[in-house]
């Protein structure tokens, strides 16, 4: 491989773009990247057209780092295109991995989203009655924009994915790991999560852990926390126990509970359900009413449990009528 430069593409699907920025967070390593690889597509940084990609041969790309979820037809089209052209498809960042924050949109219907974004949004013109339509007839003909899907998909719901790099965003060292692995040809088994630990965040967390009994839940700002003790024991929801480690315990170290961006543990099918189970297990009451009262301290558990993984969960979305 040394004789041939690595052909890579980076794509930004439905996401905040933070992952793209995170690539830049590798600092000077990006130069090594440039030396090692030809970046064939990177909409945020490099000029390149989808047409160019279409003209590539199948498998011409060595690696695609796809960040963001699949929200509309464009995301899907490009995902499929890149999959076709790439030897290795990497779901890069939480959104591609599990749907990410955009995935929380699955709690709402498309119409509700449109209503919020285009009709009720205070920042838009108040009389606006227009919501996007895929096809719009104008005098010159038909205009077309990507179709907004009913819900958000994680990348591997659309195309087969070879590796997953979790994180919102992935830490720079993970990016390095992936690229070096590809370059070095030392690829882990397909389907692996790369650059993360096999143990939960707690493993790296330096806070002291005891047996847990919680009789009240707090938001982090509601109490003065003890930085040496496990957040969960203090009643602050922390997804750390249900989330892969490898991030460097970024959130708990700042006093926030882990938000779960690294996704579920290897054996876990539904991260939110596991967190649910763990959280409810530590409640210290046998009285149904008391339990309800304690649980009332968690205002929006579903968004907490599935903050990054709703489209990757068992139910994938809300079924509100």
């Amino acid at each position: 491989m040394a004789d041939k430069k690595l052909q890579i593409a980076l794509y930004w699907g439905a996401g905040c773009g933070g992952c793209d920025v995170a690539v830049l967070d590798t600092n000077e390593f990006i130069l090594d990247v440039a030396a090692l690889a030809d970046i064939r597509l990177w909409p945020i940084a490099v000029d390149g057209k989808y047409k160019d990609v279409e003209h590539m041969q199948d498998g011409e790309l060595d690696l695609t780092l796809y960040n963001g979820a699949v929200r509309n037809s464009e995301n899907e089209e490009i995902a499929k295109l890149l999959r076709q052209k790439s030897k290795i498809m990497v779901a890069f960042g939480s959104c591609a991995h599990m749907g990410g924050i955009p995935g929380l949109a699955n709690l709402c219907k498309k119409e509700e989203i449109f209503k919020t974004a285009y009709l009720d949004n205070p920042s838009i013109e108040s009389r606006n009655q227009v919501v996007p339509y895929p096809q719009t007839k104008v005098e010159v003909g038909e205009l077309e924009i990507p179709t907004f899907y009913k819900r958000v998909y994680k990348l591997d719901a659309i195309v087969p994915v070879d590796y997953y790099v979790p994180g919102c965003p992935p830490a720079p060292h993970q990016i390095k790991t992936v690229l070096l692995a590809v370059v070095g040809g030392k690829l882990p088994p397909r389907g692996s999560v790369v650059g993360a630990s096999d143990r939960a965040v707690c493993d790296e967390c330096q806070r002291k852990k005891n047996e847990k009994k919680v009789s009240k839940f707090y938001r982090p700002w509601q109490i003065i926390q003890d930085f040496d003790t496990c957040l969960m024991e203090q009643g602050i929801l922390c997804a750390g126990s249900a989330t892969r480690g490898g991030c460097g315990v970024r959130c708990p170290n700042t006093g926030q509970g882990c938000r779960g961006c690294y996704g579920p543990m290897p054996n876990v099918k539904d991260q939110g359900a596991k967190l649910l189970s763990a959280v409810s297990s530590v409640i210290d009451s046998k009285d149904p009413k008391e339990i309800e009262r304690i649980l009332a301290g968690i205002p929006d558990f579903v968004s907490m449990a599935y903050r990054f993984g709703l489209p990757a969960s068992m139910l994938q979305r809300s079924f509100q009528q």
């Binding site: 359900a273 409810s280 139910l315």
Partner: peptide, 20 residues
């Protein structure tokens, strides 16, 4: 069974949010 009861309480809330 108390453990099940607690889990069920939270699960119920979650399922409600998910429209079940």
């Amino acid at each position: 069974n108390y453990k099940a009861m607690r889990r069920y309480a939270l699960l119920k809330k979650t399922l409600r949010s998910l429209g079940v």
